[in-house]
Design a binder for these strands. Sequence first.
DNA 1: CCTTGCCTTAGAGTCCACTCGAAGGCTTAT
DNA 2: ATAAGCCTTCGAGTGGACTCTAAGGCAAGG
Lengths: 142, 142
Amino acid sequence: MTTYRIGQFAAKVGLSTYTLRYYEQEGLLLPHRDANDQRYYTEADVKWLIFILHLKGTGMTMSQLKTYVKLRAQGDATTDQRLVLLHDVASEAHAQIRALQNNLAVLEHKIDWYQGKVDATIAEDESFEAYLNRLDQEEKHD
Amino acid sequence: MTTYRIGQFAAKVGLSTYTLRYYEQEGLLLPHRDANDQRYYTEADVKWLIFILHLKGTGMTMSQLKTYVKLRAQGDATTDQRLVLLHDVASEAHAQIRALQNNLAVLEHKIDWYQGKVDATIAEDESFEAYLNRLDQEEKHD
DNA sequence: CCTTGCCTTAGAGTCCACTCGAAGGCTTAT
DNA sequence: ATAAGCCTTCGAGTGGACTCTAAGGCAAGG
């Protein structure tokens, strides 16, 4: 069974040893120790950390992650709470994607404009402005 | 013609007066002044600021925004540079959306799993893992 | 008249997630 | 044997974008 010392593990997952010790301190990832107290990580740790990184990549904060880990440690009784938490994170992420797409639409319209691809008729501009207003309204609904 | 004092403008655009003065200091938004040196903002400033906020919302940094504003101030000779800059920002934003969607896919799969909606057959799990590996590989291409 | 809002400069504080350094001491690899 | 890697604690530094305070003063509305 393959194991990794902290330096190898860091290289494998693309984090620094500092960060790994920091995550450990925060309770996110608890490696094993050998007879000399040296940390070692297993393939299971690789999978778990990659999952953590996916969660972080959705915008989940350290604090939410810590909550999640604590709930997990408490066993099956907390699956409902975990679900609520993950649903929150997911809907935040959806909102963020939507916001990004809206902002990007504006940016790309400006790019088109710079490239002279937009017919600069009053009608067109006005309809795009109306569209933007609608987007801005929608963002306020959050 | 409607104008706004800084407090009204702040309320209108949803920023603090601190932030508006900060943006001004950074050269992003330069309001007019009345006879007593009090700032006032026009409808054009509203539009410009909203555009700035859309750009910021795509992930464009202060520093990029400052570059953009400086180029703009230099006139038509810089449209090419502005286009390059905006293209960069747009492709970064696209990448960020893709990353978010990938991470969200993992999160939602986990949610499904919690809800018992996933057939926990070895085959299914393995194919999902293969899928994740593929996503992770793709992220490395950036 | 008095409160509220605005003006200035300059600097300090905040938040988040790391990131690093120091110091002293084991352990592992070549 | 020697270097490279790892161990600890603990505190300080980083970056980005604000966010706020202080101090002293002018200006408009009720």
